[in-house]
């Protein structure tokens, strides 16, 4: 398929979709098109939008692509689409989400050990807002629930994948520099997880 045609097809697919359109979905429609080529045409589309002064871009979130308006139009859109304006997350919510995002799957006691405060209410709020989900139970006494982030979480922060999270490298270095035995914050990744 010609690049020009592919570009239009990709644009049409993303335009219609009501949730981020995955690269694999594009490849289902257009046989044997390499991922790199799809990404290339999307880059080209974004460059064209920029040049021609369009009000939107194609954004990569949660493993797919969707059209979103440019930030400079936010003030106009906010006044009309009031219901679309998402409430800001509170400090405790952000802290808890950060811990879950970096350490998932993680239990409530593990989160509370880091934050030093009770986290019940925050977890309920995050579950209600669909930013986290229950990812099973940990095989330790009491079989506590494990929490993990959702695609909604990625979309809320405009991340394409969890790997795009800002890195936490300094943490490990700082802890290594501390007196006393080494503390590994990336521990317990291989726990047995059972689906709930």
């Amino acid at each position: 398929m010609e690049n020009k045609e592919l570009k239009s097809v990709v644009e049409a697919l993303i335009f219609v979709s009501d949730k981020p359109f995955g690269i694999n979905n594009i490849r289902d429609v257009v046989d044997n098109v390499p991922e790199a080529q799809v990404r290339q045409v999307i880059d080209e589309l974004n460059a064209e939008y920029e040049q021609t002064g369009r009000s939107f871009i194609i954004q990569e979130v949660a493993g797919g692509f969707r059209m979103a308006t440019r930030p400079e139009f936010a003030s106009w859109l906010k006044s009309f689409y009031k219901s679309k304006v998402k409430e800001r997350l509170t400090r405790p919510s952000l802290e808890t989400l950060a811990i879950i995002a970096y350490k998932q799957p993680v239990t409530k006691p593990e989160i509370e050990a880091i934050r030093g405060v009770n986290t019940d209410g925050v977890i309920t709020t995050l579950l209600e807002r669909n930013l986290i989900k229950i990812a099973g139970r940990k095989d330790t006494p009491g079989r506590p629930l494990l929490y993990a982030t959702t695609n909604e979480f990625l979309a809320h922060f405009g991340l394409g994948a969890i790997s795009e999270m800002p890195k936490l490298p300094e943490v490990q270095q700082l802890i290594d520099a501390a007196p006393g035995p080494r503390l590994d914050i990336t521990e317990e990744k291989n726990d047995t997880i059972q689906t709930a």
């Binding site: 009501d18 936010a74 800001r88 989400l97």
Partner: peptide, 25 residues
């Protein structure tokens, strides 16, 4: 993690200015 929460907050502010169609992620 407190610092990580701050960087999440700035990502959130950036994303809040982008509008898109609703859809269950």
């Amino acid at each position: 993690f407190k610092e990580a929460a701050s960087s999440l907050q700035s990502l959130e502010s950036r994303q809040r200015d982008l509008f898109h169609r609703p859809g269950d992620m």
